[in-house]
Simulated scan of single mutants.
Amino acid sequence: MELGKPLKISDLIRELRQQLDISQEKFAAKLGVSLRTVNRWENGSTVPSQMALKLIEKMLHNLGQPGKRLLNEYLPKAEQREDS
């Protein structure tokens, strides 16, 4: 990732999906949303709901160290909640 580039939720979703090695369609199924919704998240035209973000955060925690890195990078407040 480039230095100085603002971190976007679309990048987090794409990276998480790549870490899980699953398609947008399978990722959508895991979250209970449509393929179109995931596509819009990754394109940056919409952002996940709070409920979807909680599920994404849970997926990141379940990934172990790679997920923790992504959490620290994209959702540092979520990681702080977990540590307290």
Rank of each mutant, 00 (worst) to 15 (best):
V47G: 11
P48N: 01
M1I: 06
P66W: 00
D21M: 08
A78V: 09
A29L: 08
K68V: 09
P76W: 05
A52F: 00
K58M: 01
E2G: 13
L71A: 04
V33E: 02
N39D: 14
L71E: 01
R40K: 10
R36D: 13
L20W: 02
L20A: 06
H61R: 11
K5D: 10
L12F: 02
L35T: 10
P48R: 03
K5C: 06
S23K: 11
I56K: 01
K68Q: 10
I13S: 02
H61C: 11
G32C: 06
L20E: 03
K26V: 11
D11L: 11
E79L: 15
P6S: 05
E15D: 07
G64W: 03
E15K: 05
E15N: 04
S23N: 13
K68G: 03
Q50G: 13
K77G: 09
L7I: 10
A78K: 08
T46D: 15
Q80F: 10
V47A: 14
L12M: 06
M1Y: 07
L35R: 15
G4D: 08
L63A: 00
W41H: 08
L16S: 00
I56P: 02
E57A: 05
R17I: 04
L63C: 13
P76N: 05
L3N: 12
A78N: 09
V47T: 06
S84D: 04
K30S: 10
S23F: 04
L53H: 00
K68M: 10
D83H: 14
W41L: 04
Q18P: 05
S49I: 03
L70I: 01
K26F: 07
K8Q: 14
L16Y: 01
A28E: 04
Q24K: 12
Q18Y: 11
S84Q: 08
S23I: 05
S10D: 05
E79C: 01
T46N: 12
D11A: 11
S23C: 13
R40C: 09
L71C: 00
T46L: 11
L55M: 14
E79G: 07
K30G: 02
Q80L: 15
P48I: 02
L60W: 03
S49T: 07
T46P: 06
L70N: 02
A78I: 04
L60V: 04
R14A: 08
F27Q: 06
K30N: 09
V33G: 08
Q65C: 05
K5R: 12
S34V: 09
L7Y: 07
Q65G: 02
V33D: 04
V47F: 12
L53E: 04
E82M: 15
R14N: 09
L12E: 02
E25L: 14
H61G: 08
L3A: 12
E25C: 07
K5Y: 12
M51P: 05
M59L: 15
S84F: 13
K26G: 03
H61P: 01
E25A: 15
L70A: 00
S49H: 02
E15Y: 04
G44N: 09
Q65L: 11
V33I: 14
K5H: 09
M51Q: 11
T46I: 14
I13V: 12
